[in-house]
Design a binder for these strands. Structure first.
Length: 476
DNA sequence: ATGTCC
């Protein structure tokens, strides 16, 4: 995208002025190089989102944005139901409530040399990873309903975790107002054996070291110190979320004419919030959020089992769990007036600032932990939400490095085995069922996560707290 | 992202 085609507000904020069908401007948070590297498709998609009914303030993209199905990945848009606002399945994405959680381990850098290779082998053996992986839980109809209604709470009750974990999860581990009955039988069938599995694509479980602290006071509130060993888990709602997304995209596309919606792009499927279909989607999506929260909760407990076996002194406590593919009802102050908005974040992380009532007590003074997963073999970041001077993407930040290259092109450019050897040479142990998957996820196929996070911080979206480097990566 | 095409 040519930066000179945008209005430059400052070095990290760019605007597409409203024209044609746009109801609000488009705003990009990125430096000039990141804007320049973005596909023109991102601009086109941002313009389309800005044209949807009931959109409030602006359509936003984060510095890691790239083009996606309908909405850009790295996009944020909020809609007002009172003003004809819509909910969009494409604005959430296929992997509903895909997200990241970070666990303390109680271990330090010096504990790793004797453990690293056994951790890699045992985590890989114990945690189902890859396309179509199945777990040790098999849900019957009643179990499925309870899981979709209960989220991480459902998982913790029989022992997949600790009650204290729930305080450290967005929505306290359970999305309210789910409608399990709005999830199709087919979606439920796909999920029957997939709880507690990592999946494939960009999903992973990593053991990492805290390399550098940027904000000592906030790091202390988060319980992070230099040299700490932590675990990052990145995954979502597996087959169920994908099936829900697929079915509602189709239904919303078909129903657009009867809702009086003229879609700027066929892929931009949406429905009025105040419609039967809009409400059914919201209920099904919230159930899928609970599926993702339960899934990450079970994976947490599986990780604890491995650490308990290899290193009984380890104590895996949850730092936080964030989702980056959601639509949530939140109150935001617009022109001095509080309004209830349906905030879509697709490849974007919620980043509530200090004092927000929804934050756990331990983090209320410093702001929400914002967990940014890098690409395989590169850094991850912990950030914190800022107190908002105004409305900046409705308290949102980036979610990761963001792809810079298609999977197809990555496959032509790298070989999985060779990447794994190279990473081993740099002290990073990768275990994966698919060397093709590893090639698709080559670090070089992603943007520079450090540059993305620098831009997010400079744009005022969140502030850097800690920089982490991987030592073990279980790759789906 | 995804039983990588019902």
């Amino acid at each position: 995208m040519n930066p000179s085609s945008l209005t430059r507000l400052d070095d990290f904020t760019w605007r597409i002025e409203p024209s044609g069908r746009m109801r609000v401007p488009g705003v990009l948070y990125a430096n000039e190089a990141l804007v320049g590297a973005m596909d023109d498709k991102v601009r086109e998609q941002l313009v389309n989102v800005a044209s949807l009914p009931g959109i409030v303030q602006a359509a936003y993209v984060m510095p890691d944005a790239h083009w996606g199905y309908g909405f850009p990945i790295g996009g944020v848009a909020a809609f007002d139901a009172d003003r004809g606002g819509v909910v969009s399945a494409g604005g959430v994405g296929f992997d509903i409530s895909c997200g990241v959680r970070c666990l303390h381990t109680g271990l330090k850098r010096d504990d790793l040399p004797s453990l690293q290779s056994r951790l890699a082998d045992e985590l890989y053996r114990h945690i189902p990873a890859g396309v179509g992986s199945r777990g040790r839980i098999h849900l019957d109809e009643a179990g499925m309903e309870a899981m979709l209604a209960g989220g991480a709470e459902w998982a913790v009750a029989p022992g997949w975790g600790r009650p204290a974990d729930l305080e450290r999860i967005e929505e306290r581990g359970r999305m309210t107002d789910p409608r399990p009955e709005a999830v199709s039988d087919k979606a439920k069938r796909r999920q029957r054996d997939e709880m507690g599995t990592l999946g494939s694509g960009n999903h992973y479980l990593e053991v990492q070291e805290v390399e550098t602290l940027h904000d000592r006071a906030t790091a202390e509130a988060f319980g992070l110190a230099e040299g700490d060993v932590v675990v990052f888990i990145h995954c979502g709602s597996r087959g169920l979320g994908h099936q829900v997304g697929t079915e509602f995209l189709r239904a919303m596309t078909l129903a657009a004419p009867e809702h009086g919606l003229e879609l700027p792009d066929r892929e931009l499927a949406c429905a009025p919030i105040r419609s039967e279909l809009g409400q059914t989607y919201l209920g099904a999506m919230r159930a899928a959020i609970n599926c993702a929260l339960a899934n990450r909760q079970i994976l947490t407990q599986l990780t604890r089992e491995v650490f308990a076996e290899l290193c009984p002194s380890a104590d895996l406590r949850l730092l936080f769990d964030v989702s980056h593919n959601t639509c949530k009802v939140e109150e935001h102050v617009i022109d001095g007036q509080p309004r209830r908005l349906y905030v879509h974040r697709k490849g974007a992380t919620r980043a509530f600032g200090p004092g927000h009532p929804d934050l756990p007590d331990a983090y209320r003074e410093v702001g929400q932990p914002v967990l940014i997963g890098g690409s395989m073999g590169t850094a991850s970041h912990v950030l914190a939400g800022n107190r908002q001077a105004g409305i900046q993407a409705f308290a949102s930040a980036c979610h990761g490095a963001g792809r810079a290259m298609s999977r197809r092109r990555a496959l032509k450019s790298w070989q999985g085995r060779q990447l794994i050897d190279e990473l081993r040479g740099r002290g990073i142990l990768v275990r994966s069922p698919s060397s093709k998957g590893v090639a698709e996820e080559a670090p070089g196929a992603y943007k520079d996560v450090d540059a993305v996070v620098d831009a997010a911080e400079a744009a005022g979206l969140a502030r850097r707290v800690a920089w982490l480097l991987p030592r073990v990566c279980i790759k789906g």
